[in-house]
Nucleic acid binder design. Structure first.
Lengths: 190, 190
DNA sequence: GCTGCTTTAGGACAATCGTCCTAGGGCCGT
DNA sequence: ACGGCCCTAGGACGATTGTCCTAAAGCAGC
């Protein structure tokens, strides 16, 4: 792996675990094991690293959504893949929150120009979820349902990390799956 | 108002609008219009200011809950007071997110000792909401409903600020009110 | 074996960080 | 009028910040 990729990967993790403002050049350089001079050769400013980290996350999100598209045949199964992030990444979410939500929140406070780019990852999820709901027959409702799922997930991530409660994240994921099942079987509502 | 109170008030606002890590002594001193030397007389460390800000927020939250207790006679109306924060503070939430959620999230990333104290504000809301639901007859369900409302509010705040969409916050508040009404009238579920 | 480009290391730079000290106003009781 | 205490101003401190420069190592093609 190239030095540049190592830097972006280390910065990605550090931005997630300790925030963008609280992560310094020295932190990233130390994590990679290179000198600050070498660092400056690849990224001249902190904002450049942030842009690269966001681009990396966007690409990783795209790849993940595409993988779900392959692995799961039906749209409902794909939506369950999304819900399961809360469980699969439960440990990190309980400790550091949602990577997307916490970064956009921090950039919004900093008034940073890259906030719009970071928020684009939300749009990625939103559009993908809406497409799944549309495939399930929820034409006009689809975007609202996508936003509902996004919102519930973000709320769960915030409270899960505030209370440092991984079990709560599992319960929320189960509850969301139950909500999805109820939406799919219009015979009876709980 | 005493200088100390002015400092805490200014720090409260700055921590909310630009984050704890990104707010310096100079920022707060500048906002109040005093010298850093004077500042140091009232607070010796940054953590002391943070503790004072959290204590102020806890107190303000307690007072707000008590006010709702007086103003609204029935528990359902009190819960609607909670939901209405999303609308009343919509402008600031769309810009900076939820003060409670964003602070606890930041302190969790920083591994700061005060994170538990900041999260206590969530507990304040949680217990108060649970009491309202218990008064409405939801005995065993009450805590789950309280967490549901908290989670939905936090999710709305995160997405509202990510998309900078104040109208979305209003729609979410309306949706939560409708959810509450449906919960209260067991005759029919939407 | 020399040349030239990419990559690296290590330090210098001004600015700012949190923290701390000291000198001196302002106001008190006497 | 005066000694004593609360409050304030202003600057100093070492460390760290983001940024930048320079010298040299590694490696390509000729």
């Amino acid at each position: 792996m190239s030095t540049r990729d190592q830097i972006v990967e280390a910065a990605d993790g550090l931005f997630y675990e300790q925030g963008f403002a609280h992560t310094s050049f020295a932190d990233v350089a130390g994590a990679v094991g290179i000198s600050r001079g070498n660092f400056y050769y690849h990224f001249r400013t902190k904002d450049e690293i942030l842009d690269a980290v966001i681009a990396r996350r966007v690409e990783a999100t795209r790849a993940m959504l595409a993988r779900w598209e392959e692995e799961s045949g039906d749209p409902a199964g794909r939506i369950r893949c999304f819900i399961r992030i809360l469980v699969a990444n439960g440990g990190k979410i309980a400790a550091f929150g949602c990577p997307v939500g916490s970064l956009t929140a921090e950039l919004a406070k900093l008034g940073h120009a890259a906030q719009a780019e970071a928020g684009q990852i939300f749009t990625l999820f939103r559009d993908w979820l809406r497409a799944q709901f549309e495939a399930l027959g929820f034409a006009a409702e689809a975007d609202g349902l996508a936003m509902y799922l996004l919102s519930r997930s973000q709320g769960a991530a915030v409270l899960g990390s505030a209370f440092r409660d991984e079990a709560y994240l599992r319960r929320e994921a189960d509850d969301l799956c139950a909500w999805l099942d109820a939406k799919l079987s219009p015979t009876r509502k709980d």
